[in-house]
Deep mutational scan, measured.
Amino acid sequence: MFYPNSPQTSPQLTQIPYGQQYAMMQRQIQQPYHPFATTEPQARLYPYHYQGPIQQEQGGFITQQSTAASPQYVQMRVTPVDQSIMSGYPNQTANGSSSSSFNYNIHPQQQQQQQQQQQQLRHHAMPVGSVPLQDDRYRKQLIVNYLAPDVTSTDLHELFSRFGELDGARIIYDKQTNMSKGYGFVYFCHAEDAKEAVERMSGYEFHGKWLKVGYSTNPLNIVPSNSSPYVHAGSRGAAG
């Protein structure tokens, strides 16, 4: 039997160049792979992502010199942007860049009308829970959420009447099932009393439920100042 490094198959040491006398086997001759043993700084910083320098080929596509990437890492192929796409944008300079302001050559009167329309939209648009300043009635009506099913309009009136005089209180019921929808409205005579009720009743436990109280901004629920107070009856038909 002959071994790869046996004296019968191995040459004389004098015939082997210096430095390879003890590297006779194939696994010894093959050098191990060192990912950080390279002179390129990109490979030292990113050993798993770097795959060699990027070269520009004919046709405008950018390719990489090395083989496919590892399945664990996804390499994105980048193509140059066609400058003709950006030619339609206004205020574009000769080098292809555009300024931040756009001039669509709008007539001054049209621009003024658009600004007025935007101001009107901001004036009428009102986020949930906010209180408008032009109508004091919005500051007097509250919406009470997360009410228990057994709470009546009379219970709601008695709960909030300790903060001040009320114009009314009612629970909203479903017309088909005649069941409470879980929320109601309270109408105060003074805005200061309503503000105190919002601050003190939010998070209050009532009939096993934690109440959420806020201003009601729905104009359909506003009680006119010259109208008669609501009837605080315990029956659902009268309260709904």
Rank of each mutant, 00 (worst) to 15 (best):
K195I: 11
P224T: 14
I85M: 01
H49F: 15
Q31D: 13
A37N: 01
N145E: 00
Q8L: 10
E165Y: 13
Q115H: 13
D136N: 09
L147I: 10
S216G: 05
A94Q: 02
M76D: 05
P53H: 08
V186K: 12
Y73N: 08
Y18R: 11
G164D: 05
A148C: 10
F160E: 09
S98P: 02
N226A: 10
M24Q: 07
I29A: 00
P229I: 10
G208V: 03
H107V: 14
Q111K: 06
V213I: 06
S225A: 02
Y48M: 01
T67V: 10
I16Y: 04
S97T: 09
V128R: 05
V223A: 05
D136T: 13
K212Q: 08
S10R: 04
E40Y: 01
K209S: 03
M76N: 03
V128F: 12
T79R: 06
Q119S: 12
E205M: 13
T79D: 05
N145W: 12
I62C: 15
Q51S: 08
E158Q: 05
V151K: 05
H49S: 10
R44Y: 04
A191I: 14
F2L: 07
R44P: 00
Q55T: 09
S6N: 12
R122Y: 14
L13D: 03
D136F: 00
R200N: 15
I54A: 11
I172M: 00
H49P: 05
Q116F: 01
M126N: 00
N105F: 13
T154N: 10
N103K: 08
T38A: 10
T38G: 04
M201W: 11
Y18I: 05
P127M: 04
D136Y: 11
P80E: 11
P35M: 14
T67K: 09
V223R: 04
Q28V: 15
P17W: 15
T9W: 15
G60S: 08
P4M: 01
K181M: 11
T93L: 06
P127W: 15
N221P: 14
A68D: 13
P7K: 11
Q64G: 09
Q120N: 00
C189Q: 06
F185H: 10
P219S: 03
T39A: 12
M179F: 06
P229V: 07
F185W: 10
N221Y: 08
G184H: 14
V74W: 09
C189H: 02
M201N: 04
A94H: 13
E40C: 13
T39F: 08
Q64F: 14
Y33E: 10
S227M: 09
G182T: 13
Q92I: 10
M86E: 00
V81L: 10
L13P: 03
T177D: 01
L121D: 00
S66K: 04
T67A: 11
Y73S: 02
F206H: 01
D167S: 01
Q120F: 07
I143Q: 08
K195D: 09
S153P: 03
Y187T: 06
Q20K: 06
Y73Q: 12
A191T: 10
Q118R: 04
S100L: 04
R139W: 07
N178M: 10
P41I: 14
Q176A: 10
R139P: 02
P71Q: 04
L121N: 11
H190S: 11
Y50N: 02
S10I: 10
G164W: 06
N5Y: 11
H232I: 11
Q176E: 13
G96H: 08
S100M: 07
P53D: 08
L142H: 04
E158M: 03
Y230K: 09
G96K: 00
Q56I: 10
T14Y: 09
N5L: 09
W210H: 12
Q58F: 15
S70T: 02
T217R: 06
Q111M: 15
F188N: 02
H190I: 15
G164K: 06
P108M: 00
L166N: 05
T39M: 13
D174W: 02
Y73T: 03
Q141R: 01
Q83K: 09
N145H: 05
I172P: 05
N5H: 02
G19Y: 12
G182A: 05
T39I: 12
T154S: 11
Q31C: 12
I106F: 07
V151Y: 10
F188Q: 01
P41N: 10
A239G: 14
P32G: 11
D193F: 10
F206A: 11
A194E: 05
Q115R: 06
C189G: 07
V151C: 15
Q26R: 04
R77C: 14
Q112T: 10
T217M: 07
G129W: 05
G52W: 09
S161P: 04
S87C: 04
Y73C: 13
A148N: 08
C189K: 00
T67D: 02
